[in-house]
Design a protein around this nucleic acid. Structure first.
Length: 830
RNA sequence: GCGAAAGUGGCGGAGUUGGUAGACGCGCUGGAUUUAGGAUCCAGUGGGAGAGAUCCUGUAGGGGUUCGAGUCCCCUCUUUCGCACCA
């Protein structure tokens, strides 16, 4: 009967000891160097899922490694506990999000402890508690005072299912990132953060130490910087001006019409004078009501209607028709396009369809363009024609010349645009941070004074009775007095996007209990930036960009000194089962609790880390979990069977050398020291835990290769004991409980990490016999065992004497012999 | 369409500077043990030929550089991810 090692007893025991000794409590301003390991905090949806286990196992391995190295490590934990799902869940269960959220948090906290993660619970935060969101409101105010917050009526992304607004970043493929409902445009007044003010700095990644290229590229694309020209078109018969943005000022002389979206302010103005049933009005309404996917799909046919109005081309005064179209976006550039059908494919298609004139202004110098023969726009560079004084100029060079000239003429200017929009943070839902604003009939929009913060969420609200924001019906809460004039006022009922809460939590951990300010600057400067941040790739743009924005803002108002919040970023892969991400909706989840109960926390961790490198997805495998469990049992049994031998012979260096070491044991000694080197290198330099664990497994196999250790001589026994004793010290990062237990069993008094990082002896990595591979024309024909100091000439001679080599050289002439030191002999023969 | 990453046994994956491809684990096969099942232990395990030594072949496909290529270069295919009417 196979005895499973008593993981349950061991794990509980060591968790208790760690907690009692407070070894994971980070010390502010310690003399030791600091190391801040942070995992993205979880949304308290119920219990931990495998994705969490994967994320936190990686973080804990790094954390324990750094602790062992002697760093003052902070690994905090908290909960991103505001948000829609909690509210919806409460509505379904006829409960309150406060109750369900706090219940879930208790479950999760217990699970964290049951897996033995080394967390500093003294710093726990939960964003839905007023001692946290109070400071979110405080930061909102500072941002407001700095002119980075404004309220604006605009077309926003609206999710009918969530009954709220979404930021641009939260719309994926025209659908809500949470519930996949198709997003539609709705005109609403709402609050924005001026993230665009930081666009330029957000493009600069020079201050991060190690971020995946992928994430940097994704943010760079999202910000979407492009250089171009803004041109000012006067209207015929009006004083209005339409500004357009173009990256092709060289084509301005070829502009034959102008394209506007229905949302353009001028369009809206014109529509007021338009009969309700006119073609123009109907077209605009149709386009505006279209959902975002259809509207922005490339396959959607380009449609438009002539407004009957004209603009004047600023460079030659030509009349240009103004069309309203479905393919121009209001929220990019100036929201108006100068259309040059000859040199832009979209404009070309549109002009062909509606028979708008096409005018060639850039000639292909290799093959002249003929208007009648064109089937698509010519978008390549060329030579300017029909462009007045710029005729004959090369098109790329002309871009600057034309813009410079327009700048002189006061008809345009060089400009830069970004795809990045300001961050709309208003949410029309209950379960979020209240925006600290009141509206007074006399004083207008007024900030709630700092001393009145937090603006607490009213707990007694009617959830789910209406589809509208429950705060609107919390009359007692809504009606308040104006802090300035004392008169009647109403509170803002929008709450903040939960991404606001998660944009600064990493700083709050530095000083989580502060009730005077969000955090003490000295403490923040001691801990920040986060040395290693770990989380899912799905936050590449949203959370990670918002957090960088907040950090830079906090720096600018003197709250922190660093430029970036996260020095190193690791984006861990998802947990996959049956080819799909584990998720409740797909019904392919495995409950971590079940695995922990059956095999123990160490097994789950080892499996997760061993299955693949951290950035890659982990394929769930029941057999793989058993394999990890088997491995830990094999380790356990090794110690159990040889306990006395290991205990008596470990750290008895003085006995070494009294008898000569056998060659078999010499190899075991090599294995020990090689494994130490490999494991440390894999963690420190490569963050590749799968190969580190593989190396330990290999070493374990090597130890089992010694079949009767009790028959060894004293010297050999000492080496054998050492080979075993290093295992808990290396396995500690991945399977800390069993490691502590084994360490204790062999008579060690202190905790594993207190012995410091294991060191290998380079002398033992030195081999005095080297195997050379002998190749003839690249094919392996033999092997050669020689002493290290054998000369190259000697090696060549020996190689040629190998029987199989001789056979293959028969009838051939040896042209050259290449000896790669310590590796191989390559014979060139013909 | 554009951009990025990747493609290695039956599977997850090693292969760090061009130098023994397939470490380690799973699975599978044979054996030992066991009343049986499970578990454990030992041996084997890319494909093909051979009793064996050994030989041929093999890292998506094709070509190239090199004494030598999974690794470098060119082309093609496939997959994944991101962006996608951005003027």
């Amino acid at each position: 009967m196979f005895m499973e090692y008593p993981f349950e007893k061991i794990e509980k025991k060591w968790q208790k000891i760690w907690a009692e000794k407070k070894i994971f409590d980070a010390e502010d301003f310690s003399k030791k160097p600091k190391y801040y390991v942070l995992s993205m905090f979880p949304y308290p949806s119920g219990a931990l899922h495998m994705g969490h286990v994967s994320n936190y196992s990686i973080a804990d391995a790094i954390s324990r490694y750094k602790i062992m190295q002697g760093y003052n490590v902070m690994q905090p934990m908290g909960y991103d506990s505001f948000g829609l799902p909690a509210e919806n869940c409460a509505i379904e269960n006829n409960s309150h999000p406060r109750v369900t959220t706090d219940e879930n948090i208790d479950i999760m906290r217990n699970q964290f402890d049951a897996i033995g993660f080394g967390l500093d619970w003294e710093r726990e935060v939960s964003t839905c508690h007023s001692d946290y969101y109070r400071w979110g409101q405080w930061l909102f105010k500072r941002m407001y005072e700095k002119g980075l917050v404004y309220k604006k009526k605009s077309f926003v992304n609206w999710c009918d299912d969530c009954q709220t607004v979404l930021a641009n970043e939260q719309v994926e493929d025209g659908k809500c990132w949470r519930c996949e409902t198709v997003v539609r445009q709705k005109e609403l007044e709402q609050w924005f953060f001026k993230i665009t003010e930081y666009a330029e700095e957000l493009l600069d990644f020079s201050k991060v130490i190690n971020w995946p290229e992928r994430v940097k590229t994704m943010q760079t694309n999202w910000i979407g910087k492009s250089f171009g020209t803004e041109m000012w078109f006067k209207l015929k018969d009006s004083d209005d001006i339409i500004k357009v943005f173009t990256t092709r000022p060289d084509t301005i002389f070829g502009c034959t019409f102008m394209a506007l979206p229905p949302e353009h302010p001028l369009m809206i103005k014109w529509l007021e004078d338009e009969p309700e049933d006119s073609k123009l009005t109907k077209f605009c309404e149709k386009v505006m009501n279209e959902d975002k996917i259809t509207r922005t799909s490339e396959d959607t046919t380009k449609e438009g209607i002539f407004t009957g109005r004209y603009a004047l081309n600023p460079v030659n005064g030509e009349k240009v028709q103004i069309w309203v179209t479905n393919y121009v976006l209001m929220d990019y550039g100036t929201g108006a396009v100068m259309a040059v059908p000859a040199h832009d494919q979209r404009d070309f298609e549109f002009a062909k369809k509606y028979e708008i004139p096409i005018k060639i202004v850039i000639q292909n110098s290799e093959k002249s363009l003929i208007l009648e023969e064109m089937t698509e726009a010519y978008i390549e560079p060329g030579i300017l024609v029909n462009s007045a004084q710029f005729d004959g100029m090369e098109s790329v060079a002309s871009q600057k010349a034309i813009t410079d000239w327009m700048t002189e003429q006061k008809t345009g200017k060089h400009t830069i645009t970004y795809k990045l929009r300001d961050w709309g943070i208003s949410r029309q839902r209950y379960w979020g941070t209240p925006i600290p604003i009141v509206y007074c009939e006399h004083c207008g929009t007024v900030l709630v004074p700092d001393e009145d913060l937090p603006v607490k969420l009213p707990e007694d609200v009617q959830l789910g009775k209406t589809t509208q924001n429950p705060l609107l019906s919390a009359k007692e809460w809504m009606n308040t007095t104006c802090p300035e004039c004392g008169g009647g006022a109403t509170r803002e009922t929008d709450t903040m996007d939960t991404f606001v809460d998660s944009s600064w939590y990493f700083a709050r951990y530095a000083d989580a209990k502060n009730d005077k300010v969000p955090f003490d600057k000295k403490k923040a400067d001691y801990w920040l930036p986060v040395d290693q941040y770990i989380g899912g790739i799905e936050h590449a743009v949203m959370h990670l960009m918002y957090a960088r924005f907040f950090h830079k803002f906090m720096r600018d108002i003197g709250m922190v000194s660093s430029d970036e919040p996260f020095a190193r970023l690791l984006t861990q892969g998802m947990v996959i089962k049956d080819g799909a991400k584990m998720s409740k909706s797909k019904g392919n989840t495995i409950d971590p609790q079940y695995i922990i109960d059956r095999y123990g926390a160490d097994t789950v961790r080892v499996f997760m880390l061993f299955a693949s490198p951290p950035e890659k997805d982990v394929e769930w495998s029941d057999e793989g979990v058993k394999g990890a469990f088997r491995f830990l049992n094999r380790v356990w049994r090794l110690f159990e069977e040889n306990l006395e031998l290991i205990k008596e012979n470990v750290a008895t260096k003085e006995r070494e050398g009294t008898q000569s070491i056998s060659s078999e044991i010499k190899e075991l000694r090599y294995s020990t020291h090689h494994t130490i080197k490999k494991v440390l290198d894999d963690i420190e330099n490569r963050m590749q835990f799968n190969t580190a664990i593989a190396a330990i497994m290999e070493h374990l196999n090597n130890i089992y290769g010694i079949t009767e250790p009790e028959k060894l001589n004293d010297t050999d026994k000492a080496v054998y004991a050492e080979a075993c004793a290093f295992i808990p010290r290396l396995l500690y990062f991945f399977a800390p409980h069993i490691s502590e237990e084994l360490w204790k069993l062999i008579g060690k008094e202190n905790l594993v990490h207190e012995f410091g990082i294991p060191e290998y002896n380079p002398e033992y990595l030195f081999k005095d016999e080297i195997t050379y591979v002998v190749q003839i024309m690249g094919k392996i024909r033999g092997k050669l065992e020689v002493p290290v100091d054998t000369s190259q000439e000697e090696i060549k001679k020996l190689a040629l004497e190998i029987e199989n080599v001789k056979k293959h050289l028969e009838g051939k002439e040896v042209k050259k012999i290449i000896v790669v030191p310590k590796k191989l002999v390559s014979i060139v023969a013909k």
